[in-house]
């Protein structure tokens, strides 16, 4: 039991370590990789401002690169690798953003809050709607309602979040003008616990959340299938014979047990959410984590780019780890859990 938890955590840590290694390798080892490109960038800047390359300048360049990336060009690759890991794991030090001239980690954290804010808001709404509809469809299997919604859900799977976003933007933002189409907060409001500010952030997050809502909808059909399977189980019949109320059976028996097979998938949805954030934030001009990542890509801000890669992976990994560690609680059958691997 404890062994299982230790194993899962260790595995997650190994995956994180692999990601860091990949990120380091991309960063340092690729010919004309970011490290080289950065060096060129700075040299160009210097050349433009009329400085000449001598030993001193070279040292200054190296010092600057080191300041941005935590990379000391004089170190061997192995030393550099361990330094890189050490700085990230112990100090969460991902270096300094070139464009923002700020430490990467706090910058990412600040932006991440906003992504998680609108993301969980829309995703939670989407998932709960999907689950409720899935269950209702299962209870009315084969009915008109079931058929129509099945078609609807299949169609929904063919629409990526960003198309939903564009349509929402055009209809509610631009044509009807009901909701703001850019920025995170209403202009002129003071951040803090005051009503106008709170209303402002909710309004500004509304459209982008709705797009996330559409993206979170897909689980409904799987859930419907699980519910139908569950409804045919013997213990459901016994529960009816035991005189339990239909509500109790629907929630504690059908609803909950049907959740088990899609539980991990739901938590994995967070990964999809983060990936989608890049494009959604671009469409809605919403400055949060995805926006930060995209801009760092355009400006070749490598420390920020690599930091984002590690952060996104870290968040996904945490989601999966939580799924694994809590699965034993919601399904007592896998308490031993040795054979269970969700990732």
């Amino acid at each position: 039991m404890v062994n299982y938890y230790v194993k899962r955590v260790a595995h997650a840590f190994m995956v994180l370590l692999t990601t860091l290694t990949v990120s380091f390798a991309l960063f340092r080892m690729l010919p004309f990789g970011p490290y080289e490109i950065m060096k060129l960038q700075i040299q160009n800047q210097m050349a433009q401002s009329g400085e000449t390359m001598d030993v001193q300048t070279r040292e200054r360049i190296n010092a600057r690169i080191e300041a941005f990336t935590n990379i000391d060009p004089d170190q061997t690759m192995v030393e550099a690798y361990f330094d890189y890991l050490f700085n990230i794991i112990v100090y969460q030090d991902f270096g300094k953003s070139i464009t923002h001239n700020e430490a990467v980690w706090p910058l990412m954290l600040e932006r991440m809050q906003w992504t998680l804010f609108y993301g969980t808001y829309g995703f939670a709404l989407g998932v709960s709607t999907a689950l409720i509809l899935g269950a209702v469809m299962a209870y009315n299997e084969g009915s008109r309602f079931d058929q129509v919604l099945t078609y609807f859900t299949v169609t929904n799977e063919t629409i990526p979040g960003y198309i939903a976003a564009i349509i929402l933007l055009i209809v509610f933002g631009l044509q009807l003008g009901w909701l703001p189409t850019g920025a995170r907060e209403a202009p002129g409001t003071v951040p803090g616990l005051n009503i106008p500010y709170m209303i402002g952030i909710v309004q500004h997050a509304a459209l982008i959340s709705m797009a996330g809502f559409v993206a979170g909808f897909g689980g409904g059909l799987d859930y419907r299938g699980n519910c139908i399977r569950e409804l045919g189980k013997d213990y459901i019949r016994v529960a009816h014979l035991r005189g339990l109320s239909d509500t109790r059976i629907a929630i504690r028996y059908v609803g909950r047990n049907s959740l088990l097979p899609i539980y991990t998938g739901l938590l994995l949805g967070i990964a999809g959410l983060l990936g989608g954030s890049v494009i959604l934030e671009w469409i809605f001009n919403y400055p949060a984590m995805g926006d930060l990542l995209l801009k760092s890509l355009f400006s070749r801000d490598y420390p920020l780019l690599m930091g984002s890669l590690v952060l996104f992976t870290g968040v996904t990994l945490t989601g999966l780890l939580v799924a694994d560690l809590t699965y034993g609680i919601i399904d007592p059958r896998v308490q031993g859990g040795a054979e269970r691997e969700s990732f």
Binding site: H11, V15, T18, T19, V22, L26, A271, G272, L274, G275, G276, V278, I279, L293, L294, L297, L305, S308, L309, F312, T313, T316, L317, L320, F343
Partner: peptide, 14 residues
């Protein structure tokens, strides 16, 4: 596992 843990679109961007 590592590959699956990195959000696909982010990986493509990188």
């Amino acid at each position: 596992d590592t590959w699956m843990s990195i959000p696909a679109l982010v990986l493509i961007l990188i």
